[in-house]
Design a protein around this nucleic acid. Structure first.
Lengths: 341, 341
DNA sequence: ATGAAAGCGCTAACAT
DNA sequence: ATGTTAGCGCTTTCAT
């Protein structure tokens, strides 16, 4: 039935019209009489015709494909549910707009170098969503220099860059303020990797919250992880000698590692040490004890990045677009709220 | 510098040759004299020319793109590190062969229906890797019917289907045999969802191991989950009344849920109940207690699926290809090996 | 409202 | 070894 060698040419013949008309119908363009349109649609339905996306891209200069690129596909990518969640959001956004999603996980610098030709032609990809960029990532410069439409997932200083970000400063601020109000005096921080802007923002929220509450800041209470469970574990072990009575951890996955270190050390959570994470991914709710955390709308942010990119693609304006999404404190057992009720 | 309106035409002019010659050079074809080749390569390097992939696809009828499709993007996708790991493998495979990866996460049946036109044209996608298919998934039939090259991740009965699979039966068999040898008499099973062939295979391994060891099989000791932590938790709670002294869980993530249920119920692991998982993902090593599990080469299986698909694309043969990968028992604390030393 | 015709940038016979 | 030419299947002016 579906001979699949169909082209608009055959459809045109079968419908008794010209190729242009078929093209108009396919693309929902005006200037086709209702009868003609119905006739063509009927033939298309009967034959099961689908226009060739490649030919279409070649002549229309748009591919209907969006790239999601993750530079230096970090270790945590494959252990932290954060990225899958983000991909889900991006994927849903693409599906909703009938765009295809291409995924570029760059494991090495070589692969990163090879990426560029692929996207530079503005043909294979209409635009790019870039996430998990690190400080000084050359990709942003390249995209900017070559006028390739892109949206960053995470904020950026350059005024030309459009982005979707989560309000990391406020989120971290809320977490730490919560701990201080609960009476914790020695609040440590397991931060994300230096070089990550999101990590820096969360650290800033931590510092500002302490300052506002007149809690002295002790640099020794700050350690850095890379969003893996292991780095959270090791970070917490380092912190142990500083005897914190609370710790704000920049991701749930690292917080799970911190809980493990505390358990091993025989520290009761939250009685001796309160813990607050960041993300509110599923495993935060099932840890022992369940994790108080800052919820961020990961999936939504991915979908919004797609919306934004498509808006940029379809309505070419100059102004960069920016969205900042709010976070939310989710209270569970690990912060010990009930201890002070 | 990079004017980016370059076509082979300009390159041809600059190099003083014809377009065909440029094309030959680009595609590493023979019948170009070394001098000409060098000259062309020089111009290409100087201008920073990259051939347009879309135009190339249109005339060569191959896109250099592979699709990874995950039908009914199951809940567990976004909480179990299994899929990210698989994607990493697939992505590396694609990068190694200079193919681009497109990701199709199908969240609804509607989206699944829309996918088909996208791939049927044999243009946008050269081939497909299909994973997490469920029983009676229409996708396989469609791909087969339309002669779209694809590789299944997971085995399949149809002799025309090429696949890469992990030896689930043997893996599960090893897990259960290990438990029985350790003296466990009442070995329960938390299986994967009915409808999944991999889940059925693991169940078969479980049943066969018990039979071989002359352990009576109790259907009441078998429950089903969906690879989420929660389903493992609930499965274990159901099993509690059956008083198992061991449980084989079909995924690490579900095993974590089982551990949580046991902890809540005050059952000591492994003393009272031994637990063995499946996967050996990072979180298996950091649970409390660390999880004995069956390691499967997820990442490798993804990369191999790509290799296989590309082999099929580039050397069109009739015969279906099949790879079965071995698993490995990884002993940690949760099975209580040391209790019987 | 409809059709004719010129590309889009490349590959692949075919000719030389 | 190199050039010529005809498409690939569609979109898009430009006529009518």
């Amino acid at each position: 039935m579906t001979t699949d060698k169909l082209t608009i040419r055959q459809i045109a013949e079968l419908a008794g019209v010209s190729r242009s008309t078929v093209s108009r119908v396919i693309n929902d363009q005006p200037n086709v009489s209702p009868e003609t349109r119905d006739q063509v649609l009927k033939v298309i339905a009967e034959t099961g015709f689908h226009p060739d996306p490649v030919a279409r891209s070649l002549s229309s200069r748009r591919a209907g494909i969006i790239g999601l690129v993750i530079p230096l596909a970090i270790q945590s990518l494959f252990e932290d549910p954060f990225f899958p969640r983000l991909m889900q959001g991006v994927s849903q956004g693409c599906n909703a707009h009938d765009y295809t999603l291409s995924l570029f996980l760059l494991h090495t610098l070589e692969e990163e170098a090879k990426l560029y030709p692929r996207i530079s032609r503005r043909q294979l990809l209409d635009g790019v969503i870039l996430t998990a960029t690190y400080d000084g990532d050359p990709l942003i410069r390249q995209l900017l220099a070559n006028c390739i439409p892109f949206v960053l997932h995470g904020r950026h200083e350059d005024p030309r860059v459009s982005y979707v970000e989560v309000d990391n400063v406020t989120g971290a601020h809320a977490a730490v303020t919560h701990l201080v109000r609960l009476g914790r005096k020695r609040v440590a921080l397991i931060a994300g990797p230096p070089g990550s802007l999101a990590a820096a923002d969360r650290k800033r929220g931590y510092l500002e919250a302490l300052q506002e509450r007149r809690v002295p800041i002790d640099e020794g209470q700050i350690v850095y992880g890379d969003y893996t469970e292991l780095s959270g574990y090791e970070g917490m072990r380092q912190l142990l000698s500083r005897r914190p009575d609370a710790v704000f951890v920049s991701s749930d996955t690292m917080a799970l590692g911190a809980l493990r270190a505390l358990r091993e050390a025989g520290k009761r959570v939250p009685d001796e040490v309160a813990v607050v994470g960041f993300d509110d991914l599923p495993h935060a709710a099932t840890s022992d004890p369940p994790l108080t955390t800052i919820r961020q709308p990961i999936q939504q942010s991915g979908a919004l990045a797609v919306d934004m990119l498509i808006d940029i693609l379809e309505n070419e304006t100059e102004a960069a677009r920016r969205i900042i999404l709010p976070t939310e404190l989710v209270i569970r057992a690990s912060c010990g709220s009930w201890l002070v009720d």
